[in-house]
Each structure stands twice: as C-alpha cells, then as structure tokens.
Write a protein that binds this DNA or RNA. Structure first.
Length: 431
RNA sequence: UCCGGCGUAGCUCAAUCGGCAGAGCGGGUGGCUGUUAACCACUAGGUUGUAGGUUCGAGUCCUACCGCCGGAGCCA
C-alpha cells in the first residue's frame, strides 16, 4: 500500500504511486484490459488494469469486482487527456474489501419511487452528489452571511407547546402524558433572541402536517430564520435580497462544476444580484389581471399566480403589503392602511415559488393579545411571547427562508425531494 | 381531501381491434489491449398490483381496493 490520497487531490500526485480507498462505480473491459471507475466520495477516477502489468491475482480481482464493491487500489497517477478528470490510475495492485452482490441501482434510468426506496444508496450517484454539495454550499453561505453581519445563532426548540402557523398542520406527539408539537417555525423564539442579542438567526428542521403532494412540499424541511430588533419592513426586505444574492453568488463561485453537472443555466444565476424588484400586493394583482388570471383581490396567491408574477422578472421578486386577513396573527399591520400587513414574500424565478416569507412583527401588547384571542389560540401558551411586548418592546422584523426550495431553484432541480438527503412527504417515511 | 394518470422480468419500458407475454439494461458464460451509460455472441429470468366480473378467450374491457406519480388547495 502506498500513500492513501483522496481522488479530488489526485493532481498533486502525478507520476507517483498512491493508494485510493473507495467503491467501484462502473467497469468496462477490453480483453486484456480493464477500465475500473472508482469513486471515493470526493470524485470518480478511471483506473486502468493491463493484464501484462499486474499479477494474476490482481487481474482476477478486477474481473471479480461488481458495482459498488469496496476496495483499495494502488497504482501510478498519470495525466490523460481522454479522462474527464484529466488523470488516470495505472493500476499495480487491487485489494478487495467486500464484493457487493446485486447492487440495485443500475446505470440506466429508474423510476422515482424505486430511487426513493433506495435513497440510502442513491446518494452515491453523480447527480445526487452534485445536488447535496450545492445544498452544503448554500447552508455554508447562509451561516457565513449572518455570521459576518454580527448575528448570533440562537436555535429554537423542536418540541413546542404551541402553534406558530395554522393549528391544523401540526404534528402532535406524546410528551410524558401531555401533548407537544413539532415546530412549524422557529420564529417566535427567534423574536425572543432578537430582544436578547439584537440580531439573531435560527436554523433547523421544521414540520408541517400539510397534505400537500406537490414538487414544492415536504413535511420536514429546513428553514433559516433571521430576526432583528429595530428593523422595519424595508430593512427586512433589504436584508432578504442581500442574503439571497449572497447565496446564489457564493454557489456560482464555489460550485460551478456541480451546477454544470446538473446542466443548470448559469447565465440566469449570474443576474441574481440585489436590489430585487419590490412590488405592492396591489401591483401584483394588476400583473395577474393583465395576464388573464381570474384571481380575486384579497386572496393569497396560488402557485400558478406566483409563477405568473415571477415570470415578469429576471430575478426574485418581493411582494409586500399582503391583505392582513390572509396572513399570520403576529404580523404588524400598516398604520396608514390597516387592511394590509407589513408582510413580504420573495418569489423565486422560473416557477420555483415562494422561498421567503417575512414580516415586521406586531410589537404592541394589547394588539397582539387581541390577535391571539381572535385566532382562538391559547393565551397561556403564548404568555412568554406576550412578555416580549411587555418588557422593552421594540419594532422588529425577520423572515424565514426554506432551504430545500432555495436549493431546488439554484440547482435547477424540478422537485424538492432531491434537495434533502432523506425527504419526508405524506407518502414517504422510508428509508 | 379533490381532480387526472400509471401499476407487465431485479430495473426501464413494449405488446396494434380482446387472440402465442417481448426488448434494452442488470445477472451468468464466452470474445475483444483505450473503453467513456463501451461493444459483440449465447443464456437464465413472468401468479401482468390484489379481489371479483364480462367473454370461447383478458396484460388489454368493467367494478372495488391497494400502491405510486402529477396537479389543486395550504404553505417555505
């Protein structure tokens, strides 16, 4: 065995003998010659086995290897123009660790249900690698954005005693004889954090028991939620557009190869720079009317409406001042036009839908208490939340960005289920 | 929950008007010293989702159920 290296760093070892540890991705033969595609998690490299250059045992080992068998393979790194990677391994020795029998995912196409049943194995494939590396990059960029702006990470609990959004979409679980709910949003706790630290964010999984079967929905999805004291709606929208610009530009800069693997149109991403267009709800309604939608003013937008609106722009569009009636109880109303909430949504281009929802929060104790009562929510469960309006209440705002929809949009993936390692939907709790 | 679609080999799909259930991939065997989802030859592999019905005859038509896919509503 020679020095063990990662394939991603193979260029540094040209002309030297190295050992790779990994799995067989695919193989081809040509008589006295085997071409082994070996992956180690970082990259895939073609390893060439000439019958005349290796021992009989090693040549037999090459013959015996099946797809996804694990191995150590030793040889000399050589530059080769025919290789997509630019380098090959001229093999001297193969050590089989385990022969994989009947690996279920073949090189040809599969249906989505089959692939999702084998999600734990599907993660090994090229496309899934590209998507999850992009997800990693977006999460990294998101943390970097807030950390660089002096935000403190203050995570919210996952077990909660109360609802943040509609009560019909809560997952209820037994909690030592009483009920707890899986969080739908970390926002309410982030508000408490903002009153403590000024600017905070939380990042974690959230859960919605919505019976949605669409390409934009999961029952478990990850959300990053900043919350800032003394921010009004304008400040909030500006933060959101700078944030999303950063996510896109960081991915474009650091994951170009993965975006190309996914055949993403990079020119569309290059445009995504702040400022973004910002339109009042009423302007959005005008757009819908002009484009032949039978939309009723006063409603919230449906998915087809969002697509029509977002198609008017070459970058995400922020719609603000939604009718208060269709928005959550904690959103502050505009004092000059109280039928509208100081709310905003960011709609991604190309039909990817809403990626951000945010608002300026109601900061008046009596008004918030009234809203809680109007919505039939438990005053007792929200006692702590009301405290924030009792002890030094200030204007504050925040938003939540759904990671999976953002990854789907940036990576150009049709369905959010491929943007998370183990998607949870109404139909799927396995693997 | 509602609307629409699909269930055939391990996988992806064919099967004309209701008339012998087939191909590619994957597996096995053999061949090939530069392949890129390699190729060539041979080969094994089937309770056509389940239950019932119509018919001389059902993968195909009808009913119910189950599973999945897409969409709506709801949302990020």
């Amino acid at each position: 065995m020679a020095q063990v290296v990662r394939i991603s760093e193979i260029a540094k070892f040209e002309g030297r003998e190295v050992t790779l540890q990994g799995w067989l991705y695919n193989k081809r033969s040509s008589g006295k010659l085997w071409f082994l595609l070996v992956r180690d998690g970082s990259e895939i490299i073609q390893c060439v086995v000439f019958k005349n250059d290796v021992s009989a045992e090693t040549f037999q080992a090459a013959e015996k290897l099946t797809q996804e068998s694990s191995l150590r393979i030793t040889g000399t790194v050589s530059a080769d123009k025919r290789s997509p990677l630019g380098f090959e391994l001229q093999v001297r020795e193969i050590e089989i660790i385990q022969i994989a029998i009947d690996y279920p995912i073949s090189k040809k196409e599969h249906g989505i249900d089959f692939l999702m049943d084998h999600r734990h194995l599907w993660l090994r494939s090229r496309k899934q690698h590209a998507i999850l590396r992009i997800r990693h990059q977006i999460i990294h960029a998101a943390r970097e954005f807030f950390d660089d702006r002096d935000f403190i990470l203050v995570d919210s609990p996952i077990f909660t005693p109360n609802a943040a959004e509609g009560t019909t979409t809560l997952f209820e679980t037994d909690y030592f004889g009483s009920s707890a709910y899986l969080t739908q949003s970390g926002q309410l706790y982030a508000e408490a954090g903002a009153m403590a630290f000024g600017r905070v964010y939380c990042f974690g999984p959230t859960f919605r028991a919505e019976k949605s079967k669409t390409r934009r929905h999961l029952t478990e999805f990850w959300m990053i939620e900043p919350e800032v004291a003394f921010f009004d709606l304008q400040d909030d929208m500006q933060l959101a557009e700078e944030f999303v610009s950063h996510l896109v530009q960081s991915t474009l800069k650091n994951r170009q190869k993965e975006l190309e693997t996914l055949e993403r149109d990079l020119t569309k991403l290059a445009n995504i720079k702040a400022p973004f267009p910002k339109i009042h709800y009423r302007e959005a309604v005008e757009i819908l009317k002009k484009n032949g939608s039978n939309f009723m003013e006063g409603d919230d937008f449906g998915a087809p409406d969002e697509t029509i609106i977002s198609e008017q722009f070459d970058r995400p569009v922020i719609v603000h001042h939604y009718p208060a009636a269709v928005k959550a109880f904690y959103m502050k109303r505009d004092s000059r036009q109280p039928e509208y909430a100081l709310a905003m949504d960011m709609l991604a281009p190309e039909g990817y839908g809403e990626i951000i929802g945010g608002s300026q929060r109601e900061d008046d104790y009596d008004t918030l208490l009234k809203r809680i009562r109007e919505n039939g929510l438990s005053e007792e469960a929200f006692r702590w939340y009301l405290d924030l309006r009792k002890y030094g209440s200030v204007p504050h705002s925040g938003f939540g960005l759904g990671i999976e929809r953002t990854v789907a949009w940036i990576a150009g993936i049709n369905h959010v289920r491929e943007t998370i390692p183990y998607p949870r939907t109404m139909q799927r709790l396995y693997p």
